[in-house]
Simulated assay, not measured.
Amino acid sequence: MRRRPFLLPPDPDAPFPSPEHALRDPDGLLAIGGDLSPQRLLNAYRAGIFPWFSEGQPPLWWSPDPRIVFRTDGVHLSSRFRRWLRGCDWRIRADSAFADVVAACAHSPRPGQDGTWITAGMQRAYCELHRLGYAHSVEVFDGERLVGGIYGVAIGRMFFGESMFSAASGGSKTALSALARRLAGWGWPLIDAQVENPHLLSLGAESWPRSRFLAETRALVGQPAPVGAWTRSFGTMAAKELAAVRPP
């Protein structure tokens, strides 16, 4: 008999099933239903699970195998792009335009995708996590224009990336590289990138067995780290600083 995803009960604190029970087809589908309350979302991320569904669907919860991750000291920028950065006057900040970054990610066209999984309800849920100090954005500005960004969820010393966008060529990889640079400086070793695509692999992402990812996640989410806005701790970074980052 074909296995089916676990049906989540209404209680937002109800535990998720073990990711080892996720389906192989579609890869990583684990559970269905529930809501996007802060409690449920944080419980999911702590367990290596994330929501991903389209408008009109119930929440779908995933833990794919393999899992795509970045080492924070391993984001690769090409020599050509680093040369371009040396003359770039972009500035990078954190948590100064969270809702704008999420909205831009929601409206960015994706090759092979019709519509977005970042629904209005999803946007509200992550803005609430941001208000509570768990969701963060890194923003790239050309003057006052937002030209790139990335957002995700931080628990302990683990960052779970959700989405990124470019409104100018190189905006998203600048945001990713800046995020990785700051996290590495803080002693955070990993960024979850969820599922594989060629662009992520070209930037240095690695494919890990789910078991390895879950073991690392369990250790990192339990480590102490401040909860709250990153605006002051991240500061303002000049994009040209990233030109000195060497490829792994």
Results as ranks from 00 to 15, higher is better:
Q39D: 15
W84F: 12
G161M: 01
A104R: 01
E216Q: 14
I118Y: 01
P111Q: 10
A99N: 04
P111L: 04
V221F: 05
A167I: 11
S78M: 00
D25P: 10
G228M: 11
D95F: 05
E20P: 14
A106M: 09
G222Q: 08
A106W: 06
G204A: 10
M164K: 12
S169Y: 04
A103G: 06
D100K: 03
A99Q: 05
G34A: 00
S207F: 06
T217M: 00
S207C: 07
A135F: 07
L132I: 01
A243V: 07
I155A: 05
L85H: 04
R181L: 09
Y45A: 02
R24W: 02
D27G: 15
L29W: 06
G187E: 09
S137F: 07
L132G: 03
S163C: 12
A106V: 11
F6H: 05
R182N: 08
G171T: 03
A97W: 01
G74F: 13
R218C: 05
G187Y: 02
G222I: 06
R181H: 12
D100S: 13
A120T: 15
F16M: 04
H21T: 13
E196T: 02
A103I: 00
Y151E: 00
R218G: 11
L41C: 05
A106K: 03
P9M: 01
H107M: 14
T236V: 05
P224D: 06
S211W: 07
M164F: 07
L214K: 02
P9A: 09
D13W: 06
W90V: 01
A125S: 13
W208Q: 08
D25A: 15
S79C: 11
G143W: 09
E196R: 00
G222Y: 00
R157E: 12
S18C: 04
S207T: 14
S37N: 08
G121S: 08
P51E: 09
H76G: 02
E206H: 10
R93V: 05
P198E: 10
F50E: 01
I32K: 01
A22K: 10
D73W: 02
T174Q: 12
P5Q: 13
P38S: 14
A205L: 07
L179R: 11
F160G: 15
P109F: 11
A103E: 13
R145G: 04
